[in-house]
Simulated assay, not measured.
Amino acid sequence: MPETVFVPLKNEGTIVWRPVAASACGVNVYRLGGISTEGEEWQFPPDALVRCESRRFSDGTTGLAEVALAEPEPPSPLGATEKGGWYCPAVQKVISAGLCWEYCFADLGGPTDTAAELKAWIAKSGRLSSLSEFHEVCHVCPHCQWSKE
Rank of each mutant, 00 (worst) to 15 (best):
S125I: 03
M1Y: 09
Y30M: 13
W86I: 03
W101P: 00
G110F: 01
E82S: 14
A24H: 08
E102Q: 09
L108R: 15
I122C: 05
Q92C: 07
A90D: 00
A22L: 08
E38W: 13
T62Q: 12
I95R: 00
K10M: 04
E149W: 15
N28M: 15
E41G: 04
F57W: 14
A22N: 05
V94I: 13
C88K: 01
P72W: 05
E40D: 15
Q43H: 11
G63W: 03
W121D: 02
V137D: 03
V140E: 12
F6M: 13
L78V: 06
D113A: 07
E12F: 10
P19Y: 08
G126K: 08
F44Q: 07
Y30N: 07
A48V: 09
D113K: 07
Y30H: 15
G63T: 06
G85M: 02
D113I: 05
G39D: 08
L131M: 14
R127W: 12
K10N: 04
A48L: 10
G79W: 02
A80L: 11
F44T: 07
P8W: 01
E102H: 06
M1S: 14
E136T: 13
K124P: 01
G33M: 08
G84H: 00
L49T: 13
E82A: 15
L64G: 00
G13N: 09
D59L: 10
T112Y: 03
Y103R: 01
P74F: 04
V94W: 00
V67I: 15
S58T: 10
T61Y: 09
G126P: 05
V137F: 10
N28L: 13
F134G: 02
V5N: 00
E38F: 13
G60F: 09
V7S: 03
E82Q: 11
E102F: 00
K83D: 08
E73T: 12
C141L: 04
S54Y: 09
S130C: 08
T14H: 15
P19H: 09
Q92L: 06
N28C: 13
V16I: 15
A70T: 06
F57T: 12
W121Q: 03
G33T: 09
G84I: 00
F105L: 06
A97Q: 03
T37W: 10
R18I: 04
E73N: 12
A24Q: 15
K83Q: 06
S129E: 14
W101F: 06
F105I: 02
L69W: 07
D47R: 15
T14M: 14
I35E: 14
I15W: 13
G84K: 01
H143E: 06
P142V: 13
E102K: 04
E40P: 07
E38R: 15
L99W: 00
E53V: 13
Y30T: 09
S23E: 15
N28R: 12
E102T: 02
R51S: 11
S130A: 11
E38T: 13
F6H: 14
A48M: 10
T114F: 04
Y30I: 10
Q145L: 12
D113G: 04
D113W: 07
A97Y: 02
A48R: 05
C141F: 02
L32K: 08
R31E: 11
D107H: 05
T4V: 15
N11E: 11
